[in-house]
């Protein structure tokens, strides 16, 4: 039995980051944004990355989603080493597995609510885009406003559309960048509820960047990033911090 191989635990991980560092060229200087980041997130887990403005959290989110490549270290997304993929390969990886929710909603102003939701479904080449988009918009409570354009919707409504759009392709992982950052507290809470509920329903892995501690507390895991250095925040730490 000693020759039995260990089960490949990596199959359980949606995201695996090893020794990731990232810096940008400022002509003569190099600005280090992330340093030696290590991070594992299992499938179906929800994780919050908390940090101040400029701490590097959004950069980390982009790297995890394969929107950019790190200066060094590796990022594995659903078992694929991102830096080994071409840009187009990363794009198709995203189209099948990844959803996004942004702070500034990022709806296409020229499309109606339902068209915004249909867009990723069509891009992924899936059928029944319309029915699925309608169902999702009903689900986020915008059944009556499907034909409205983003300009005709409030901030909270726009973010609901964005959430519907993010879940449209049933992504395995959802990246959210300050999803309540542009919303008032009550609307923000409602959006958070919606996000969490859909996350549970679809069994999606959720990675969220926020500076909102309450929002972060609703995630299973909690990372803090400060000056480019990431560490996991455990309940015990919280007590230390609050003490």
């Amino acid at each position: 039995m000693s020759t039995d191989r260990q089960p490949d635990l990596s199959n359980d991980f949606m995201i695996q980051v090893q020794n990731l560092s990232h810096s940008v060229d400022l002509g003569t200087d190099k600005l280090s944004i992330l340093q030696h980041v290590n991070l594992d997130i299992r499938k179906g887990e929800s994780a919050a990355i908390v940090g101040r403005s400029g701490s590097g959290k959004t950069t980390l989110l982009g790297l995890l989603a394969g929107l950019d490549l790190p200066s060094s270290g590796t990022v594995k997304l659903d078992g694929h080493i991102i830096s080994a993929l071409s840009e187009d390969e990363r794009a198709s990886l995203r189209s099948q597995r990844v959803g996004f929710v942004f702070q500034s909603f990022q709806l296409l102003p020229t499309l109606s609510a339902i068209e915004n939701v249909m867009l990723p479904i069509e891009l992924a080449g899936l059928s029944n885009a319309k029915t699925q988009a309608e169902n999702l918009l009903e689900r986020v409570g915008l059944g009556e406003r499907m034909q409205h354009t983003p300009r005709q919707l409030s901030g909270g409504e726009q973010q609901r559309v964005a959430i519907a759009r993010a879940f449209a392709v049933e992504p395995k992982v959802l990246f959210a960048d300050e999803p309540t950052g542009n919303l008032d507290t009550r609307t923000g809470e409602a959006i958070t509820d919606l996000l969490m509920a859909l996350n549970r329903e679809q069994g999606t892995t959720l990675v969220m960047v926020t500076h909102d501690q309450q929002l972060a507390d609703r995630c299973q895991r909690h990372f803090v990033i400060d000056a480019g250095v990431l560490h996991e925040h455990h309940a015990a730490d919280a007590e230390v911090i609050s003490a």
Binding site: R94, S95, F100, L119, L123, A124
Partner: peptide, 8 residues
Amino acid sequence: LKTMGLTG
């Protein structure tokens, strides 16, 4: 569009 996986 790129975040939605549209290729170059």
